[in-house]
């Protein structure tokens, strides 16, 4: 199931909801609905110096986020899939203190509302089922983050407020085990925020800059009912300024940051014969620059295959 974007300072899209991960797609006419919830917390912000982490700032008593996620996926044609992703987030600071006060602009006020809305198309261009050694897909995401623009200056913001195009490429392979199978995939996408009106800029630079997102995941399914495996994700926004260089009077003070985040975790899936799969994932930030460095993220969810067809039968 697809891994969403990693949290940034403004703690956006804590979307570990999973649907359609890897290069593989649903079969024609198949559909899947995923309903999930997640929670994450961070207390420390890693401040960057160039490409590296320079120091760490404790963000008072930390920031909590709770979110609900709904993802619908549909196999439109053989090897072609579409997906829509919707979330509702609630973010608050545990005990706003001096850092929040220092940041100003209501940095630690509680924020809730719709998170970025994403739609995606994915095309499986190379198919292992047709005898190829790997599967490969190309896709395009459209991220509508405008609902998060109003409070993007907060530490507790829900997103960067932009609309972005995100082309994506994924590669993967599956193999069999005596009673199950294994899978491994990697995907890379480039997120291009489109100019807003008025344009978001900080110091003359467009904010946020282009972002690169990548995930590698390996799942082992010793028996069909359970899958388990590690996952690593990366977010890199090369264009921007360091935390201490940003203009804290600007609304886009956080979206203007140069960012790097690496997080790792594990995923557990439990499925039955009727197309219902439970998902549990836990991730923790491993390394961060200009972003929270101790984010712990837990998500749970249930995916229903062919939900609509089941309801009409």
């Amino acid at each position: 199931m697809r891994r969403g974007a990693i949290a940034t300072v403004a703690l956006t899209w804590a979307t570990t909801a999973h649907a359609g991960s890897g290069p593989w797609v649903l079969g024609q006419g198949d559909e899947q609905i995923f309903v999930g919830a997640e929670a994450q917390r961070f207390t420390q912000l890693a401040v960057g110096d160039g490409a590296y982490q320079d120091s760490v700032i404790a963000v008072d008593d930390g920031v909590m986020t709770f979110g609900a996620k709904l993802i619908g996926t549909l196999g439109l044609a053989r090897r072609f899939e579409v997906e829509a992703d919707l979330s509702y987030l609630y973010t608050y600071a545990n005990e706003p203190g001096p850092v929040c006060e220092l940041l100003g602009m209501g940095a630690c006020k509680t924020t809730q509302g719709l998170g970025p809305i994403s739609t995606r198309v994915k095309w499986l261009v190379v198919d292992e089922l047709a005898g190829r050694p790997l599967s490969m897909s190309v896709g395009l995401d459209l991220r509508f983050g405008q609902t998060t623009a109003e409070h993007r200056e907060r530490v507790t913001s829900l997103g960067d407020g932009t609309f972005a195009l995100e082309p994506r490429v994924a590669l993967g392979r599956i193999g069999t085990l005596p009673k199950g199978w294994w899978s491994i995939y990697g995907d890379v996408s480039a997120r291009f925020p489109l100019p807003t009106d008025p344009a978001f800029t900080v110091g003359g630079e467009a904010a946020p800059g282009i972002e690169l997102v990548s995930t590698v995941e390996n799942l082992w399914t010793p028996v069909p009912v359970v899958s388990l495996g590690p996952s690593v994700s990366m977010l890199y926004r090369p264009q921007g300024v360091d935390f201490l260089e940003t203009d804290f009077t600007e609304k886009d003070r956080f979206t203007a940051l140069r960012i790097f985040v690496l997080e790792a975790g594990a995923k557990l899936l439990v499925r039955n014969d009727t197309g219902i799969t439970g998902v549990l994932s836990v991730f923790h930030t491993v390394y961060a620059v200009n972003n929270p460095q101790d984010v712990l993220k837990v998500s749970v969810g249930v995916a229903f295959r062919d939900f609509a067809r089941r309801r009409t039968e």
Binding site: M1, H18, G20, S21, G22, W24, V25, L26, G27, D30, Q32, G75, E128, L129, S135, G172, I174, W181, S183, Y185, L219, T221, P224, S227, L269, T277, R305
Partner: peptide, 11 residues
């Protein structure tokens, strides 16, 4: 049902 990672394809 062809298992393709977390997503299965049915025919």
């Amino acid at each position: 049902v062809v298992r393709t990672g977390p997503t299965d394809r049915k025919y």
